[in-house]
Each structure stands twice: as structure tokens, then as C-alpha cells.
Amino acid sequence: MINWKTWVGLGALTFLFGVLALGNAVIASLAITILLGTLFAITGAAQLWAGFSAEAGGHRIFSLLWGLISLMIGVSFIANPVEGTLSLTMVVMAFLMASGVIRLVMSWQMRQTRFFWAMLLSGAVTVLLAGYIFANFAAVSLSLLGILLGIELLVNGAGLVGFGLFLRSHRS
């Protein structure tokens, strides 16, 4: 098992990266877009290679088509990271809206239970967040992904530090 100090160190480093991401959320957003573009390009190239290597048939055409689309998305994100960040922000906004609406519908299904209000509040806040992003798209679009990454890194870092301290206090 890894030493508790390793977990605390990883947590502190992750927390620091979260602070840095929040310190310049636009740069973090662009870095996310370029990284995602690189992953799409690698996946697309691998999918194209698999499509050319496969036996003839429907799977080959699907593999080639999907590989070409993935490669094009990847190259587009790498070549135009600002536009890619805007696209990713729209996707995040759409997912938030869909998730919130689904939770609102689920809350209505749960209206006879004690969990109704929690689900209703969760859905409403998520829909309002998506609405806020939509209403202020020009102001938040380039920094949203970096802010979300920064928050995730802060929370993850705190969790890793907590886990390391837990391990220290429960050593055998």
C-alpha cells in the first residue's frame, strides 16, 4: 500500500493545480481543449487504422467514418482552441440543461416521497446554472471549463489529503 505521505503530497499538488487553474481559467480552458483535441486526433487516427485493417463490411465503413470525424474534431480543436472551447462550453451547457430537466421530471415522479424537494432543488439549480451560462455566454464561455477543472482539482486535492490523513490515523 502507498504511504500516507504520498496521498497527502498528491492531494496538496492536486490542490495547487486547482488554485493555478482558477488563477487563469482561460488558459486552463484552452489547455483542456488542446488536450481533448489531441485525444480526439489520436483516437481518430487509431480508428482509421483499425478501419483500414479490418475485413470488408459494415463495420469497416463505420470505423472509417467515425475515425475521420474524430480526427477532424481533434485537428479542429488543436488548430482553433478558442472555437473549440466555445463548442465545449455549449456542450457542457446542453448537458447541464438536459440533466436539470431530467431531475425536474424525476422529482415530479417522486412528489409523494420525502426526496421530492431535494431532487426538485437539484434540478432547478442545474437548469438555472445552464440558463446563467446561456445568458452570459460571451462572458463565461472561455473560462467555464477552466473554472470547472479548478473546482474539481481543489475538491479532489482536499479529498486526497483527507484520505492520506485517514490512512495515517488508521495504521496497523
Rank of each mutant, 00 (worst) to 15 (best):
M1C: 11
K5E: 09
L10M: 12
T14K: 00
F15Q: 06
F17P: 04
G23L: 01
G23M: 07
N24E: 06
V26T: 13
A28L: 01
S29M: 05
T33D: 02
I34M: 09
F40K: 05
I42R: 08
G44H: 08
A45M: 07
Q47I: 02
A50C: 03
G51T: 04
F52C: 00
A54P: 07
I61N: 03
L65S: 01
L65A: 15
W66M: 14
G67S: 08
I69W: 06
L71A: 15
V75P: 04
V75N: 09
S76W: 14
F77R: 15
I78L: 14
A79G: 11
N80Q: 08
L86C: 01
S87I: 13
T89A: 09
T89R: 05
M93V: 06
M93Q: 12
L96Y: 14
M97R: 09
S99K: 04
V101F: 05
L104N: 07
L104M: 15
W108D: 02
W108Q: 04
W108H: 09
W108E: 08
R111D: 02
W117C: 06
M119D: 04
L121Q: 07
T126L: 14
T126F: 13
L128K: 03
L129Y: 02
A130G: 15
S143G: 15
I147Q: 14
G150D: 00
L153M: 14
L153Y: 07
L154T: 01
V155W: 12
F163A: 02
S169G: 05
S172G: 12
